[in-house]
Design a protein around this nucleic acid. Structure first.
Lengths: 340, 340
DNA sequence: CACAATCTTGCACGCGCGTGCAAGAGTAAA
DNA sequence: TTTACTCTTGCACGCGCGTGCAAGATTGTG
């Protein structure tokens, strides 16, 4: 266990040092670290031992510079109020790491600053940009596509109509029909839909699907409300405004929420502001199955997205040479609990 | 608005191209993009206009390679169950970005894989590594420090006794004394402390402080329980196991929790499993003031860390040339609500 | 107007590694 | 053993930019 036998070139071990120690050329060292390379097993072994003892680690900056592939993706997020984002991050970071991709985390909460986010991604020469936010409107996406140096713009867990974009998402239409049927089967007749913010390029189809489907199959058009962000506190406000003081016979019997964050805000209000019981007086459904949806406090009937499968497909997309028709929809699972 | 007037060298605009277009040398282009550089304002203006029209963006990989500063930090996290992490991420990403630092997000949930996380950081030649996880024990930190190529190992929002580490955290001792006094003043006499996991190198002093302080000032030693992760669901289990079936007169009158995640799990159980009222039967305090702590459902009395100040100090640390005595403690704020 | 001090600009060299090709080593068939 | 392959290895060149220095341009002072 020799310690600190770094060469004299400034404390940084390079492939040259390893090559010298292993008695091969620098290029053979490089090959030893690439899994596709053609190299004899003895050579690789010699290299690896030398590398180990010198503490050599390939410099990905230089590799990227020389090869024009960075194995880096930028993850742009503008929604830190929804705990589901944490779940998505966990899944994405784990699966991308496992397949050799690193993640640059970029906060785009400041909407006017989205340009800087892409600039950032460009400067690091990421191979792809992944959007898991919500406020990316057309302007932003267009600007991104115009100025981009990266190869792919992926919208994760959200639908996108922009043809230059790759959308990996749950099938909202299928999901909402399933929820609508469930709601109707359980005997609810006066649903209110609580929606999140609207954008053009990256969209959830949940509200439209639910409203249209309900009307076509079960009669009247459901009442709807919208929240400007997926924030339980904001959802609570909207629900309060909509329901406080309303006569009992005009109350909805269920609130169908675009996601769990909104649903949890709604439940809090129904219980603590309106003093009503869930689901007896008003039922609630969500979407995402966040941790916490299962807590005894919420017992939320919700819909789980297959995040692992989606993330794995994302890797496929990253590694694909195709350029179009990469969009994909996944089927999730309805999780019935006691809230509806 | 000329479109796509990229030069013929492969679609990539370099400083050379801009130099040619602006009628200056490549180095002047470089200077125009560095704020400390000495350059005439006319030259900078010429360069900037040329850069704009060509769509030039400096390549940070090359810059990093040449300068040996990457302006990149790795953010290692192994706790995705606690929504407070989302708040920390938001604050860190925003403030670091504003000061020119990019963030490599690394998931170290798989504990045996922490080595890979550092390898990762090394390969990208990050300038510093920031830990916001919890399970980093001595072995991991030591391994990191041994193999490291980065300059600084920062433990954020957590205390560290390792001298090779920089800890930026709230003053747990001060905080817990404040909480203990508050709890006592409000008339509670039989506190139970609900703690999170223990590690050696990165530690919270909350349990020790509370227990010792309570015993010294107010008499008996408080009962304690521990949870293996900051996960509300796990906290709920532990509290259930500890309290279900216990005679009423042996119940604690308050549960002081190491953080909000645990506190929220406790509240859920107290209300829905034990059927007791909060705070009348059992009160609860938390720590962090996560979004959701203020919801009508929890109304959690808690303690807010000054995350913005901490993140801003983190930037100072990153830009400092000092090597030691960079640790710093911050004072937070007790947020009294209705849960205690 | 001359000279020095200051500001601004240009350049050789190197950062560490990948690409594509050509030479060398090893192996199988004749 | 020879010939024709295949496998393995070495190398010139370039990726895009920063560092440190020296030459040139500019300004101020007497």
């Amino acid at each position: 266990m020799a310690r600190e036998k770094r060469p004299a070139n400034g404390g940084n071990v390079t492939a040259d040092d390893v090559a010298a120690a292993a008695g091969v050329s620098r290029w053979t060292v490089g090959r030893a670290f690439r899994k596709d390379a053609s190299i004899s097993s003895k050579a690789r072994q010699k290299v690896m031992m030398a590398a180990e003892s010198l503490g050599y680690v390939p410099d990905l900056r230089a590799a990227s510079l020389a090869s024009d592939r960075s194995n880096l993706v930028a993850l742009l997020i503008d929604d830190f109020a929804n705990p589901h984002k944490l779940v998505m991050m966990e899944r994405l970071t784990r699966i991308l790491r496992r397949t050799g991709w690193d993640i640059l985390l970029v906060n785009t909460l400041d909407k006017d600053d989205a340009g800087h986010a892409f600039l950032n991604a460009n400067q690091r020469r990421v191979d792809a940009v992944i959007l898991i936010g919500i406020q990316f409107d057309d302007d932003v996406v267009d600007a991104a596509l115009h100025a981009r140096r990266f190869h792919k713009l992926i919208i994760f867990a959200r639908d996108s109509k922009n043809p230059n974009t790759i959308s990996i998402a749950v099938d909202d239409i299928h999901a909402m029909k399933e929820i609508a049927n469930y709601v109707h089967e359980r005997g609810y007749r006066k649903p209110m839909f609580l929606a999140g913010p609207r954008t053009h390029s990256a969209h959830l189809l949940r509200k439209e699907t639910f409203v249209d489907y309900w009307q076509q199959h079960f009669g009247a058009e459901p009442e709807t409300e919208a929240v400007v962000a997926y924030d339980p506190a904001l959802a609570a406000e909207i629900v309060t405004k909509a329901l406080v003081g309303r006569p009992r016979d005009q109350m909805p019997d269920i609130i169908v929420c675009e996601n769990d964050a909104l649903a949890m805000g709604a439940i809090d209000v129904i219980r603590h502001k309106l003093g009503l019981r869930i689901p007896d007086d008003i039922a609630v459904t969500g979407f995402d199955d966040v941790p916490g949806a299962a807590s005894p406090n919420y017992r939320l009937t919700t819909y789980r997205q297959p995040l692992t499968a989606m993330a794995e497909y994302l890797v496929e997309v990253l590694e694909s040479d195709e350029d179009n028709n990469l969009d994909r929809k996944f089927l999730g699972t309805l999780i019935p609990r006691e809230s509806a």
